[in-house]
């Protein structure tokens, strides 16, 4: 088992190297000079002298290979460099904003779990019943409304018209409600349908039929035999989406003035603040790889046959 884990962790390294290579190449191929972008954002006329000074300061006067190797070495030692714009270490900027993003992402995840499990379960046991129709409605809305628009709608009704919740910002528990709903709705839509299908399939399993013939109470069958079996695939799906959730907060953070890292990343893109962009992409890659590794290990714990087969599955 430990060999399998080591193998999986080892396979992450080339993926990260490739991610950094693509990133460095994209920066290199972009027609926009970050030094110039910095100066124009700062309302400074880009004279040749200042441009040369800024390029040297940002390390943009080096060759592609040198830039790549320097970036890899830096990131490997968790040195994310210094922001071009603020002049502060990227890691400090990230750590300042990451807690807010994590808070928002986890709140949405919890909300998604607490809504989709009962809803999906009820929709599954009573096909075409009230909850099934409700879950279908939510699925349509969740899958079709873009999150920024949903955000505006929620603000308009709950903050402006009804004056129940704040428009944006962070601080009290009421601040997290609207952004968490906005972020959770697409997840609820997806996982409710996933669980519903899973419940319907499980109910057709022979052991459920057998339990019924044994005269076991329906509530016990549904609770012990159906739900327990139907939930794990959904949890796996949620785990897989953890990385996506953390990096998917960008739009929601902007609409709700949530001071997280996603919003900061948007500003960095406009400013062509390369160290911030690099740091973000590197962390996002780590998160994605990390959450997929976590899911693999969870599956391994559930089903040890995977390790025995030499880890060929997945």
């Amino acid at each position: 088992m430990s060999v399998y884990i080591l193998k999986r962790v080892g396979s992450v390294i080339p993926i990260l190297l490739l991610a950094i290579l693509l990133l460095t190449a994209m920066i290199h191929l972009s027609p926009v000079d970050p030094a110039e972008a910095y100066l124009s954002a700062a309302h400074i006329q880009p004279t040749e002298e200042v441009l040369a000074q800024k390029r040297a300061e940002f390390g943009l006067d080096q060759s592609f290979l040198t830039q790549y190797v320097t970036t890899v070495v830096r990131l490997a030692s968790f040195d994310f460099g210094t922001s071009y714009v603020s002049g502060k270490p990227v890691l400090d900027e990230v750590l300042l904003r990451l807690p807010a993003t994590v808070q928002l992402a986890l709140s949405s995840l919890l909300l998604a779990i607490f809504v989709s499990i009962p809803l999906g379960f009820l929709a599954g046991i009573r096909k075409n019943g009230f909850f099934d129709h409700l879950s279908r409605g939510i699925a349509f809305i969740g899958a079709s409304i873009p999150s920024f628009w949903l955000g505006y709608l929620l603000i308009f009704f709950f903050a402006v018209q009804l004056d129940l919740l704040p428009v944006g910002g962070i601080g009290s528990p009421s601040h997290v409600i609207l952004p968490a709903i906005t972020l959770a709705l697409p997840l609820i839509a997806l996982y409710t349908r996933l669980l519903r299908t899973s419940v319907i399939e499980t109910m057709r399993e022979p052991y459920v039929q057998f339990a019924r013939t044994r005269g076991i109470r329906e509530t016990v069958i549904l609770g012990k035999h159906v739900l327990r079996v139907a939930i794990p695939p959904m949890i796996t799906g949620l785990g897989m989406n953890l990385g996506k959730l953390l990096t998917g907060t960008i739009i929601v953070e902007t609409v709700f003035s949530w001071p997280g890292f996603g919003r900061y990343f948007i500003e960095a893109i406009f400013d062509r603040d390369m160290p911030i962009i690099q740091g973000y992409v590197f962390l996002a890659a780590l998160l994605f790889i990390g959450s997929s590794l976590l899911v693999d290990l969870l599956q391994l714990a559930i089903d040890p046959r995977i390790a025995r087969k030499g880890g060929n599955r997945r």
């Binding site: 986890l106 962070i170 601080g171 601040h175």
Partner: peptide
């Protein structure tokens, strides 16, 4: 505990934008 931490965590109720 985790829900409470998430809702109240990282923040001070007096600091809202409203």
């Amino acid at each position: 505990l985790s829900i409470t931490t998430l809702l109240f965590g990282c923040s001070n109720p007096n600091e809202g934008a409203d």
